[in-house]
Amino acid sequence: MIREITIGQYYDEESVIHRLDPRVKLVATLIYIISIFVVNNIPGYAFVVVFLGICIALSHVPFKFIVKGLKPVMIILFITIAFNMLLTPGEILWKFWILKISREGLKAGATMALRLTLLITGSSLMTLTTTPNNLTDGMERLLRPLTRIRVPVHEIAMMMSIALRFIPILLEETDIIMKAQMARGADFESGNIFRRAKALVPLLVPLFVSAFRRANDLAMAMEARCYRGGEGRTKMKPLKYNGRDYAAYAIVWLFLAGCIVLRIVL
């Protein structure tokens, strides 16, 4: 059940998007996020949706798989819509007791939900098509100028890649521990919120113990191989831009320009 969470997971496939340089994908995602907040009318949103649709089609990641990743954030989405709908003042469409729905609220809720969905889908497309290692490599390279002002970029990137590396491992472990406790009659699915919170103790204790043990082992293994940070370290596979990477840069900048134009013109 817990394995159904697909956010941040890598989906192995052969595609143009997968082959792009991770730096391009990071920058493109950033531009894409900005563009979501630039557009403010229906043609604008349609433009973004079409752009995202083309990217998804190019990535060869099944649409179903991406939608599945949206499920866990549904609750947040619904809460956002509800708050926006009920708490935005304006022309009242429907009223019951202290609950009021205004036209403005409805619009704000719908906009917010659409933006969130686009945001999550777009950024998960990046993680789905980039291996965690590539992702942190790209991040490290993009942030390298910051080392001049003594930001430990390599160390941050290392921590990130370790954290990302451990997500699937810990998810799988959670699944096993849950099953091991269910085999002893534990119940994670029924009861009120307090009982459910209490039921998590037999799950969290072994999970934490194992996470610490793994962290210890990893630290030991790194030390045994004389790891000493980023200074003077070279890469086995240095990142290099190709023709398609420049093309991708051009396309996303054009996309942002298109969004700005749509906002100004309409």
Binding site: I177, A180, A183, P202, S210, R213
Partner: peptide
């Protein structure tokens, strides 16, 4: 139907 998992670390808490 009692099932004992492979690693005891997965259930001791």
């Amino acid at each position: 139907v009692g099932l004992v998992f492979q690693y005891p670390e997965h259930q001791l808490f």
